[in-house]
Design a protein around this nucleic acid. Structure first.
Lengths: 235, 235
DNA sequence: ACCGCCGCTTTGGTATCCCAAATGTTAGAG
DNA sequence: CTCTAACATTTGGGATACCAAAGCGGCGGT
């Protein structure tokens, strides 16, 4: 049966809707998430909304405030560097494992992602290029053949999407992805490690730059104790 | 009423109860988790149970089966190596960051954990030694001063507790923890990396040995496709 | 103008009811 | 005797209504 009714529970639909709205900025950081309101807007009862909200909390996109409404999470500077640190560790692992375990079929898929990314990048279509870059990363994670890694990757992915927002340097990424692909194909673990480190550094720098531009008045009301590790700002 | 009601939401109480029962083996892997049954057993309604089950799913201890009852997760051989790979990456990061960012107070706490672990280990109290070893790891993660890392650590922790079960080589771990502590205190990142790798390798070996012993007939009914790692392997 | 109190809002929880799908059971056909 | 098809049961997902408690905010007193 091709058409295959992929039965999606309402709660999942609600979750995806909310997640998209949070990521694309429709729901601003700090804005209220009132169960009854959302339920009314989406035409469902409170239950699916509760479930969705809970899931979003465990994905880290929503901050629950016991006994009161939840809010869209506000990421602080340190949240961002935290994310980058963890992401670096995990993606480096993913790249290395991918290099070790890549299969012919997986490699083909990766090549495909890469080609599409390059094509989109060449055409200047940033939208598509970014999407394909994300696919590339996901395929790498699949090649790593580690379900837990994929799981965590998915969680971090939504945070990444959120904080990356609309932008990034898609041609630079495309080029780096190409080198990464070659190293994975060649099973050159050493080189993969180097390239991964470099790629992640590039990404980090881009995010920092992006936030420097668009930061405006995003300075949240975090505890004043967190400042410790952010050399991400001035300098 | 009288005795200082520590108001933990019911759903959290249910979650903790279930988690403990899963980890200590009261609920065997593969056994059914029927919402209505659990609700009746714990004297709550289905909602808190649903919430708890959801959380446990996102912690990876429960496998949801759409439209049917959830089951206690059965970990396969590959789940275990997946966990070890991810844990290695994350804990190595934690150790390194801890070495870089350790504070005087945090160091003292870590020393304290270590001393208690050593004491328990010397007395042959494996229970306490294991608990303190876990504290040691958690404190390291705190020293790393990365909230996301702590979060992920917590998730992996319950899986670790589950698969470690009752055992491990507490004196060996105590010794390794001591060396790790010294390297962190000395801010010797290089050495921390080495020791972390070694420590994780030891842990991995212990887990493997443990499972080899106690496996008996644990060979689950996993897809027979999991072994397939290397098709273009040779060369 | 500032501070405290009280009422409204909102969540977490309970209790039912309903539905659709997946399970298991049983009876009938080959 | 075995395999299968129909049926009854179980179970999770959802909707609705209601309740208690706790935070938030606005109102009024000083």
């Amino acid at each position: 049966m091709a058409t295959a009714e992929e039965f999606t529970p309402e709660s999942e639909r609600v979750m995806n809707t909310l997640r998209d709205e949070i990521i694309d900025g429709t729901r601003a950081p700090g804005s209220k998430l009132v169960e009854r309101e959302i339920a009314a807007e989406l035409g469902v009862s409170r239950l699916p909304v509760r479930d969705a909200l809970r899931s979003l909390v465990s994905e880290g996109l929503v901050t629950p405030r016991p006994r009161t409404w939840a809010v869209v999470r506000e990421f602080s500077q340190s949240d961002i560097s935290d994310l980058n640190e963890v992401r670096s560790a995990l993606e480096t692992l993913a790249f290395r494992l991918a290099a070790e375990r890549r299969t012919r079929a997986g490699l083909a898929k990766l090549r495909d992602d890469l080609d599409q990314q390059l094509a989109a990048s060449a055409k200047g279509d940033g939208q598509a290029a970014r999407r394909k870059a994300a696919d590339f990363h996901q395929t790498v994670t699949e090649l790593a053949d580690n379900a837990l890694l994929s799981e965590l990757g998915g969680i971090l992915q939504s945070r990444m999407r959120w904080l990356l927002g609309q932008h990034d340097d898609f041609d630079l990424f495309a080029h780096e992805h190409e080198e990464l692909y070659l190293a994975i194909e060649a099973r050159d673990v050493q080189r993969v490690d180097e390239l991964a480190a470099q790629h992640l550094a590039t990404s980090r720098a881009k995010i920092a730059a992006h936030r420097r531009n668009a930061n405006a008045g995003a300075k949240a009301d975090l505890d004043p104790s967190v400042d410790a590790g952010d050399d991400l700002n001035d300098a």
